[in-house]
Design a protein around this nucleic acid. Structure first.
Length: 430
RNA sequence: UCCUGAGUAGCUCAAUCGGCAGAGCAGCCGGCUGUUAACCGGCGGGUUGUAGGUUCAAGUCCUACCUCAGGAGCCA
């Protein structure tokens, strides 16, 4: 009986249960009171008839404000008229705390107000659905890699050097030294892949880019698998199977939440491997005459990504970008030395890049030359170069940004809703 | 960092050419035994983001600043 939660109400039909939760909404019709409670697992309508409870209990229930914490006792009943399919006939009520003036009301609010009250906004139905889908996505990521021979080896958050010299790092004091917050676990992944074969890391990453768009956070979570003895083709195959598994798992286990979000799930049903593969040169050709500012040889902008992906009903894998626009550790294409053996997976419906990865440069001399060309401090990379001195081999992997994946699967306008407490440009409260 | 837009009641927004500061929701009081953002009647609620300026008169026009939102670049 103590195990009752709203989510499992179907198992408790015709039983008297105790529900601990919060007052989500209330409607009244004279001598009958509809208390809509939430308990973290769902929402349930609790019906209190005036002649079923003591007069003071009824009066108390009429007076308490939204988000009052309550312990309600009553009998569970299947009821088609109630959202969720079940409701409770209330016989007992204990008010743990009567709340007045809960800031978030039933009518519409602006984004600024809701973000200022993010700690309370999380209680709302939409936000609840998003965070539960996020959880399902993370579980699917781990399950897939765990079931396919990958070992979780987490990488450090404090790092002494930049992974990619171009992006901005958050600098922090490390006793008498400076340290930076990680922006990728990839270089360390390469070390652990040489020790364990197939590995992944999963954790927060930090980018001090002054980006102010619907696709950027200063702090975001990234899952990064890395495989020894892998080519670009292996990396692409992993990426499409990985994403297919995640989408299938979410469709399978989070239907209710997708419904709350009014997500068009037909667009997600198509997401099955294999994904179309598009060479950079072909993608660039698709952009010709589309009126973008894209110039051949450069990277794609957000609108370019949308233009490329809109011709496909599932994610598209764009590979072999010009080496000049990619990071120093990318392996070059033996068939075209100007190109890097890399891949970006572009999500459909304009959600853009969710995965970036590729095959890593395996040769010691070439890697040393590349580090010099990029003006990176060679001394800091000695441990990384050791990986090429002692048993180098073809290897590769990718990183997937969890928040972009959540935004895509949930069909969200803005990435700020994909994490409980988003860190955004100049905004770090609450 | 750059470009654009917005700051008016607790919240979401009105306010015509510069001429008495308004509505819905929330709150409070009352009504209703099946409501679905319930509904119906009544009441209270304002230093119009901040600081200057123009004017008989500024929410409205001008200047600066602050905050927020949208977009760009960069990226996942």
């Amino acid at each position: 009986m103590s195990a009752f939660t709203i989510e499992t109400a179907a198992r408790f039909v015709d039983q008297t249960v105790t529900l601990k939760g919060w007052l989500y909404n209330r409607r009244s019709s004279g001598k009958i009171l509809f208390l809509i409670l939430r308990d973290g697992t769902g929402i349930m309508q609790c019906v209190m008839a005036k002649n079923n409870v003591a007069p003071d209990v009824f009066a108390q229930a009429e007076a308490i404000g939204l988000e009052s914490s309550l312990i309600v006792t009553g009998r569970v009943r299947a009821e088609a008229r109630a959202a969720g399919g079940h409701e409770m006939d209330v016989t007992g009520l204990e008010v743990v705390q009567a709340v007045a003036d809960y800031p978030i009301t039933k009518k519409e609010h602006g984004t600024a107000f809701l973000m200022e009250n993010r700690h309370l906004w999380l209680r709302s139905r939409r936000q609840h659905a998003v965070i539960r889908i996020r959880h399902a996505i993370i579980k699917a990521c781990r399950d897939y890699l765990d079931a396919n021979g990958f070992t979780l080896v987490d990488t450090p958050i404090f790092t002494p050097n930049a992974c990619e010299g171009t992006t901005t790092l958050f600098e922090t004091q490390y006793f008498d030294d400076k340290a930076y917050l990680t922006q990728s676990g990839q270089l360390y992944n390469e070390a652990t892949a040489m020790a364990f074969g197939k590995v992944y890391c999963f954790g927060p990453t930090f980018r001090a880019e002054k980006s102010k768009t619907r696709r950027h956070l200063m702090e975001f979570w990234m899952i990064e698998p890395e495989m020894a003895w892998a080519t670009l083709d292996d990396v692409m195959e992993l990426a499409e199977n990985f994403i297919s598994h995640i989408v299938a798992f979410v469709l399978d286990t989070r239907r209710e939440e997708l419904k709350v979000l009014e997500r068009d799930t037909s667009k997600l049903e198509n997401v099955r491997a294999p994904f179309p593969r598009l060479a950079y040169d072909d993608a660039a050709r698709m952009l010709e005459g589309k009126g973008t500012e894209f110039v051949y040889g450069g990277d794609f902008g957000g609108t370019d990504e949308t233009l490329v992906s809109e011709g496909f009903d599932r994610p598209v894998m764009v590979h072999r970008y010009p080496a000049a626009v990619k990071a120093f550790y990318m392996e070059t294409d033996p068939a075209d030395p100007g190109k890097a053996l890399c891949v970006d997976v572009l999500a459909p419906e304009g959600y853009g890049e969710v995965i970036g990865g590729g095959q890593r440069l395996a040769d010691l001399d070439k890697l040393q030359a590349r580090i010099r060309e990029h003006g990176l401090p060679e001394a800091a990379f000695q441990w990384y170069l050791d990986l090429r001195r002692y048993g180098t081999c073809p290897h590769g992997g990718f990183g997937m940004g969890i928040e972009r994946c959540v935004a895509w699967l949930c069909g969200l306008e803005h990435i700020r809703e994909t994490i409980a407490f988003p860190r955004m440009l100049y905004k770090i409260y609450p």
